[in-house]
Each structure stands twice: as structure tokens, then as C-alpha cells.
Design a protein around this nucleic acid. Structure first.
Lengths: 128, 128
DNA sequence: CTAAAGGTTACAGCGACAGGAAGGTCAATA
DNA sequence: TATTGACCTTCCTGTCGCTGTAACCTTTAG
């Protein structure tokens, strides 16, 4: 199939697919005589897998390792486990940071002053 | 004062200070005869203000507007209010997204299989 | 025959810096 | 005086995961 069909079936932009090939996440497909990329049905599954990983915010480099691990039946599952655990830890770190951020922003409250000289928000931002 | 002193006092990297000047967030300072940037004491306050805003994850473009508003005593406080409110809303959106992400990652659980063929994580990633 | 739709490459831009190269300047020391 | 080391300058590149654009070629439909 051509790239647009793969894009539709995998729900990934054709440009993104070319990008994935460029960065080595997706292996280069065969080319037709006109230079068009020609994909196999299995490529749809690979891309759907990649998309699910991206929806979990997993970095491309990690996804690359997940894809490689799948190609090697002797590979240990520990690699997969570690990547997912790290991703979870990172999400939890980000959550804690955002919670602090939210608190800080809320203490700024909203300002109903008319002129910036009396603006309570700016006042607090200048001297916390 | 020279840039390194400003960097120390404001707790902002000298490279970052030059970058802020480049993108128009910080006005270009006077130059000494040797070409060195020469800053005024007030610049410390401006940079500390900028740093506090950055700690709240406020984008440089918005900080730029906050700085401009402070220079204009007739400016309305509504601008400030809007920027902070939007920032808060964005942080809250991000929090909701991360909560969903965390859930999804947790349903993948951890995998104790030895071989990737039996890996429950990969299994779930392939067919959710 | 022509126009639209789809394919190709290559390059630039996003945000907010950080790293490094290559060179000029300054103060202190041997 | 020569040199060392710290500091300053500009300019360029890389980060991450794409997306937009330009310029061009191929296929398909009317």
C-alpha cells in the first residue's frame, strides 16, 4: 500500500511516517519504480503500536527500543518493564510539579484593580 | 555591572540573559568601550521578575507583555489577570491529561515474564 | 489536454535554552 | 614582560516531535 493508505489505517500523518523512517524508528520500505514508498500490511500494526506508545507520551527513542525488543524473541521483558516504569515515574513527577505550579498560580488570585500600579498579581510577582 | 554579576544576582544564566535580549524580552543594555554589556541595578529586579514568571511556566511572549504593562502606568490590570488565568487553566488542563496518562500507564502494570513473547505489557500495547 | 490529487526531497520553524568554537579583554602572578 | 586563567563577545548547532512550505514529479479522472 502507499503512504496515504498506511496513514489512514494507522491514524498517523503521512509526514510523520516519513519522519519516523528518517529517525530510524520505522524501517525503510520498498520503493516502486516511480519512487513511491510501498508498505506491507504488517507495517500498519507497527505504526499502531507506535501511536499507542506516543499516546502514553513515551519518547521516540524508547519506542525504538520497544520495537527492537519485539523483533528479538529472546529479548528480556525487563527492558519493556523498565521503560514503562520510568515513563510512569516521569508522569508522576510532572504531576507533582504541576500541582505546585497550580498552587503558586492560585495564590496570585485574580486582580480587579484598574491600574497596574495597584495590581496585586504584579505586586506578588515582584516580591513573593 | 557586567553580565556575570547580573547572572549571579538574578540567578539566571548569562547565556539565557543574552538570549532574552535577543528575543526582545530584555532591552539591550549599554556597552562599555570593550564591547562588554553594562547593566543597571534595576535590571536585577526585571530579571528576578522574569525568573519568577518562568518558574510559573509562563511563556516568554506573555512575560514580555507583563514587563511592558509594568512600564506603562496607565495600562489596565486586566491584561495581567488574563495571562495568569490562562496560565492556570493551562496547568489544570495539563494536570487532567497527566492523570489520564498515569491511569493508562498503570493498567499496563509491570511484567515479570522472562521473554517478550509473553510480556503482558507489550501484549496490551498491541491490542488495548 | 488539463487539472487535481497524491507522491518525492529538502529545508525552516516551533520554545527556551545549553553547549561549543573561535577569538578579544582584563587582572594577577612568575 | 610573558603568561595564565577567568571572563567577555558573536555565531552556529542541537534538543524533541513533529508541521509547514517550496519545488518538483506521477498518477488518475474528466
Amino acid at each position: 500500500m502507499k503512504i496515504s493508505e498506511l496513514a489512514t489505517k494507522s491514524q498517523i500523518n503521512a509526514k510523520t511516517i516519513r519522519y519516523y523512517e528518517q529517525v530510524g524508528l520505522l524501517k525503510a520500505p520498498q520503493r516502486a519504480s516511480n519512487g513511491y514508498r510501498h508498505y506491507q500490511p504488517g507495517d500498519v500494526d507497527t505504526l499502531i503500536f507506535i501511536r499507542r506508545c506516543r499516546e502514553l507520551n513515551i519518547p521516540l527513542d524508547d519506542i525504538k527500543r520497544l520495537v527492537e525488543v519485539q523483533a528479538d524473541p529472546n529479548a528480556s521483558c525487563a527492558v519493556v518493564d523498565k521503560i514503562i516504569a520510568e515513563q510512569l515515574a516521569q508522569v508522576q513527577r510532572a504531576q507533582r510539579e504541576l500541582a505546585l505550579l497550580e498552587q503558586s498560580l492560585q495564590t496570585l488570585a485574580s486582580c480587579s484593580a484598574e491600574q497596574v500600579e495597584k495590581c496585586s498579581i504584579l505586586h506578588k510577582l515582584k516580591a513573593p
